[in-house]
Amino acid sequence: MTGHFPLPYNTLVVAGGMAAVGCAAGVVGCLGVLRRRSLAADAASHATLVGVALALAATGRRELPVLLAGGLLTAIGSLVVLVMLRRFTRTREDAATAIVLGVSFGLGITLLSGMTARGIPGSAGLEQFLLGQTAALTAADAMLLGCLSVAAVTLVWVGLKEVVLVAFDAPFAAASGWPVFAIDTALVALLAVMVVVGLPAAGAVLVTALLVIPPSAARQWTDRVATMLVLSGAFGLTAALVGVAISAAVPRLATGPVMVLAAAAIFAASFFLAPKRGLWARWRQQRELQQEWSGAGREQTQAPAKATGEGGPWTP
């Protein structure tokens, strides 16, 4: 049946799966960005390597679901450590995040390289989890990742009202009876799952970029959460497909970096071109205002010269 397609069946399935992963990363990432949990997700993603290595050592099976389950366990473990560090020591949030990220990543690299050096079966090529390599995926793996992505987007849709409420005004949410800590925990757990799902595509080091860059680009275009989710999903999907295509065409090119660069290109375009918030729009607005004010100045002699000084006219 593959004869009908210009591309092999496996490549198509992998591309479809990764498109779903990129889209879900963009959607889930929006909530992480709005609730300011992106750095926690970054720490969790760096901690996945420990779990991947331990899962292989413990089971001896080099199967994607097994390795990712291990990665999810240590990702969540790192988040628990992060919460404890902040609660029981006086470490500030950014320092605590950096500590967890550095230590867990160091441990993961040590385990991986140690296992490769000792020639433990299946440990060769595990560095695909470092930078991402979609060419290594089977159709079944890609389908699993795609299904998990669909599930993650569904969960976002279900709990959107609650998460947006907490992200915008946590004290108000708590005062009106919402369990803020439980909602935050659910959100961070979902981020951890998304990090693990994106791991084969983008790798431990870069997967967070897929959770952060598309939402930041989407934010430039809109002032509504719903629109931001849709745009971010579309941007993530595009970046993922570009990454898959280019890394498939260029031998030995890791997928993660290409995906991130594609996302960055979208972000740069948004940053310059977006209406209202974009650099170009703001520059043009500024110029129109200046012309308007200087025109008014000529008509009314020199009176409004002072008024142009501070930020232009402002309507309450």
Binding site: L34, K161, E162, V164, L165, A167, F168, D169, P171, F172, A175, S176, G177, W178, R219, T222, D223, R224, V225, M228
Partner: peptide, 24 residues
């Protein structure tokens, strides 16, 4: 709450925020 407790750059409209009063 005090006005300073939230990020006013958050992507919601005035109407969205008032609607949050009905969530509980």
């Amino acid at each position: 709450p005090q006005r300073e407790t939230v990020d006013w750059d958050f992507p919601v409209s005035v109407f969205d925020v008032v609607l949050m009063g009905t969530y509980a």
